[in-house]
Design a protein around this nucleic acid. Sequence first.
RNA 1: GGAGAAUUGGCAGAGUGGUCGAUUGCGGUAGUCUUGAAAACUAUUGUACCGAGAGGUACCGGGGGUUCGAAUCCCUCAUUCUCCGCCA
Length: 423
Amino acid sequence: MIEIQRLKENRAEVLEGLKKRGINSEQDVDKILMFDQQWREAKTKLQETSANLNTISKEVGKLFSTGERDKAEGLKLQSIELKREEAVQKSRVEELQNELSSAIMSLPNIPRPEVPSGKDANDNELVFESGSSPTSESVPKAHWDLAKEYQLIDFELGVKVTGAGFPFYRGKGAKLQRALISFFLEEASQAGYEEFSSPLMVNEESGVGTGQLPDKEGMMYHVGGDDLYLIPTAEVPLTNMYRNTLLPNDDFSIRITGHTPCFRREAGSYGKDVRGLNRLHQFEKVEIVRIEKPENVESALNEMIDHVKSLLEKLGLQYRILKLCAGDTGFAASITYDFEVYSAGQDKWLEVSSVSRFDTFQSNRLKLRYKDQNNKSKLCHTLNGSALALPRIVAALLENNQTPKGIKIPEALVPYTGFEMIN
RNA sequence: GGAGAAUUGGCAGAGUGGUCGAUUGCGGUAGUCUUGAAAACUAUUGUACCGAGAGGUACCGGGGGUUCGAAUCCCUCAUUCUCCGCCA
């Protein structure tokens, strides 16, 4: 949620920023400013009425205790009238408040100045590339064929038991999953992130806090009977631990990590994008989250990017980093870097991580603040990134490391798998 | 799942219809004393919002209600504890 103060003071800059996303919000912004103005006026008026009412009520109490019943009864009538007035004003204030907050909630975050403008994935900017594609005499196979050949993943079984996008991993496939999770968590711990194991369902407030709700495109699974949501990413529980929190000083740098399954409805996906492991309804991911004061955000973001880089390098994967253009940047983010690995069997780049900063967009919704040097409360900044999401890493490992003798496990992973080859 | 009890400021814990945003203790902060520290003493110490300011409004687990007036009465939901039942 954009800070209202920012809208008021820098209307032009905000509009300019949102324009980069390809949306013209002039009318929305002006509506918000108008609602805000009206809300303030209504609120001030209401408070005056309440103050009057409080004064009279106290007076009535005093009169009763001194036995002046007649006077008290008179005042009582007066206050009944005022109370009616107060009720009207109160509902007006609430109405305006709702209008205001739903209008402001519907605005996405403002892209940072360094974010390129553009509409979709075609306008993303390549900022880094590393490694080279594996050379092989034969045509590399796609991971869904390899998974079948080595009995690592059973997609049909998943369809039978649950539905498309819910595969079973078996044997060395399952062990590889477990190894990757341990490897990623261990690396995150080494980098100073505290490990958490979190709930996999969250309540509505948490969904709103990190920006998944009000629901955009049916991203989350909703458990109707208990009104809970299955998490689409560990970002939601990990960040919401700090909802409604006031950190006592400005001496903090909060780093947390956690592994969770992630559940995504992925409504509207189709075709070759969803083949094999490319897009699943349930997948495993290790997430890193940081909560920082504004001065430290820049360096925190760089550290996170370096962390993800090091993971990919240790796994020996060819990868590239894209700075997303404004139009392709998520609703809540102010800048996002996507990491993609090259997958030889499909001759395709697969997104395996997104590292984003949110500035105060999430913390404003979360009411996550800290006390600065002058003892003033200020909004924290939040960041998060995948480190990493498993399925496409598995896809790339299978496709890139295939040999006539089997699939070679990267050296860094062997201590976690306990085997060097899948064959 | 059933029965009972509870939920008050950073913590402990008073307060059962009016002057209570809330007694008190601990803790925190500042000061006095001290070479310094401790102790003692004194003062101060919640959050958010509206207002140019003076000041005001809201908040005693959440929501709703009764009343001129609610921490206090009623309804409802949540959570915690105790007992019973069931169970990985």
